[in-house]
Each structure stands twice: as C-alpha cells, then as structure tokens.
C-alpha cells in the first residue's frame, strides 16, 4: 500500500518535470538554451517516472533501474553531440548572450 502511494507520487513528480522540460524547449530563445531545458528536465522526469513504476511493481524494479541509468548515461552524450554539431553548423547564440570563449578560440 505504502509503496503504491510513494510510486504514484514519484510518477507525478516525473510527469510534471517532463511537461516543464517540454515547455522549456518551446519557450527558450536559442538551440543551446533549449538543450539545457530539454536535457535536464526530461532526464530527471523520465528517471523519476521509471523508478516510480519500478516501485509500484517490485518485480520490475531492477529492470526499471537499468532503463533509468541507461537514460542517465546517454542523454548528456546526445545533448553534447547535438550542441557541438550545431555550433559547427554555425547556429548563432541568442542576443542575450554575454560571452563566447569557444568562438574566440576558433578565430585565433
């Protein structure tokens, strides 16, 4: 009974974070800030949802942990790949940006 309630709370938190991540991808001004929101919020949201499902059904707990850790390991790598690729493609930073030491390095 208690694991049901705890799992449902974890799933609810995760689902809200998934929604906030999507909202961030929609609202942020440029690719890099979208990656920030898209990677962080969706990773924690998916992590929390999947672990919550594992807690509700104890026989799936280990399998859900494997999926969650796989997401935890691979999502940052995918974000890094997209970020570097779009920088090399020449996608500009937003006008709000204050500093760009990566571009300075390239020019020298």
């Amino acid at each position: 009974m208690w694991n049901m309630i705890f799992g449902e709370i974890l799933i609810l938190i995760g689902v809200i974070f998934l929604f906030l991540g999507s909202l961030g991808v929609f609202r942020m001004p440029d690719v890099y800030n979208r990656l920030q929101a898209g990677t962080k919020c969706t990773t924690l949201g998916a992590f929390s949802t999947i672990v919550g499902v594992g807690i509700i059904e104890p026989s799936w707990f280990l399998k859900s942990l494997v999926i969650a850790f796989f997401l935890l390991l691979t999502n940052p790598v995918a974000a890094h790949a997209i970020g570097r690729a779009s920088y090399k493609m020449g996608v500009k930073l937003t006008e709000k940006s204050v500093v760009d030491q990566y571009g300075e390095e390239k020019d020298e």
Partner: peptide, 20 residues
C-alpha cells in the same frame, strides 16, 4: 538543430510513456 533538439526530448518523453 532546433528540430533535432525537440526530437531528442520527444524520444525521452516517449520512453517514459512506454514504461507507463
């Protein structure tokens, strides 16, 4: 690039949806 970012986020959301 924006489209790929949104696809990347979509796949994560879909993984969570499949588990649900």
């Amino acid at each position: 690039s924006d489209r790929v970012v949104s696809v990347d986020a979509m796949t994560t959301v879909t993984t969570a949806l499949l588990v649900l």
